[in-house]
């Protein structure tokens, strides 16, 4: 995935403070050309060179797919995360050159749907900004329900309201406004597709409520924002390459493998696409599986790990890499 053609040399053209937690970044090609086309729901992987370490984080593209002269992403500051968002917030200024990846869409609209029903929580709103622009441009039928902590942190609620009027519904936690999901789901025409992006508790709740209401899994789409979590450092042996690596507190196993000079496959870097799946040859300790890819049986068996988000605690871990 690190092939040359997948990497775009970009320059940050603007950094906008959206609110206390969120900043928006605009990217253009260094050579001034158009960026690759994408569809709503796609993400790009941003390479952050921070001294001698490199982090790669996926961010949903939020600009309109109808306009590819720039890409925009929004980054929510995570003070207890691995530092990627803090790097973006504190270090990245207009003029900063960065490598971003070609867009990949693991959360695309099913355009055969009669209606698109979107449920967002917090920063999970970003893919819907692109999707609603895409749909509005072709007269698509959609409705967005967006839960926020409070008015001040309701990123883009105003823009969305302005663009799409009554199709956008905002729920403010601090005003005790709650989405009545069972009623909402019961009233949708047959052929509606449901999309949810937000905290994992919200995704689980929406998926379960939909399943109970008789929504087929084919009609329910979700994107987990599973950013890699920091954790205790651990040692790993890569059997195929015959090297031992150290995974630091604030880096992911995938990043540590890359730092060692390998180019393992990846797509989402968020535990959902399955690309980075790696076989475990032996282990003595416990896995911290943070992905949404492996089955519960696989997780229990300890035979596989998703290095983009998962970690390990224990004596030894040998991987087939």
């Amino acid at each position: 995935m690190k092939s040359g053609s997948n990497r775009i040399e970009a320059v940050v053209t603007d950094v906008v403070t959206v609110n206390d937690l969120v900043k928006r970044f605009h990217f253009q090609r260094v050579d001034g050309g158009l960026l690759p086309t994408f569809s709503g729901g796609a993400h790009t992987v941003v390479e952050m060179r921070d001294g001698d370490r490199t982090r790669l984080n996926p961010y949903s593209l939020m600009s309109s797919p109808l306009d590819t002269h720039d890409y925009t992403i929004s980054v929510r500051r995570d003070d207890v995360g691995r530092g990627g968002s803090l790097f973006m917030h504190n270090q990245v200024k207009p003029g900063h050159r960065m490598i971003i990846s070609n867009p990949v869409n693991l959360f695309s609209l099913d355009l055969r749907a009669r209606k698109h029903l979107m449920i967002a929580g917090g920063i999970g709103i970003t893919p819907f900004l692109a999707q609603t622009s895409q749909l509005a441009g072709r007269g698509g039928n959609f409705e967005l329900h967006y839960s926020v902590r409070n008015e001040a942190l309701a990123s883009y609620a105003d823009v969305l309201k302005q663009r799409h009027g009554k199709r956008v519904n905002i729920y403010r936690d601090d005003h005790e406004e709650r989405l009545d999901l069972p009623t909402l789901l019961a009233g949708q025409p047959l052929g509606t597709h449901l999309y949810v992006c937000g905290p994992s508790g919200m995704i689980d709740w929406v998926r379960k409520t939909a399943a109970d209401a008789g929504w087929p899994v084919e009609n329910v789409h979700y994107e987990h924002f599973a950013a890699p979590q920091p954790g205790k450092p651990f040692e790993v042996t890569l059997a195929v390459s015959g090297i031992g690596i150290h995974v630091g507190e604030n880096e992911s196993l995938l990043e540590a493998i890359e730092t060692a000079g390998l180019n393992p496959p990846y797509l989402c870097r968020g535990g959902v696409c399955g690309q980075c799946e790696t076989n475990v040859i032996s282990h003595d300790g416990k896995f911290l599986h943070n992905d949404h890819w492996l089955s519960d049986e696989d997780k229990a068996a300890g035979c596989k790990i998703m290095p983009c988000v998962s970690r390990f605690e224990g004596k030894s871990l040998v991987l087939e890499r």
Partner: peptide, 10 residues
């Protein structure tokens, strides 16, 4: 029937 149905119809 399909036109008028709501999600939840199997």
């Amino acid at each position: 029937i399909l036109e008028e149905a709501h999600m939840g119809l199997r």
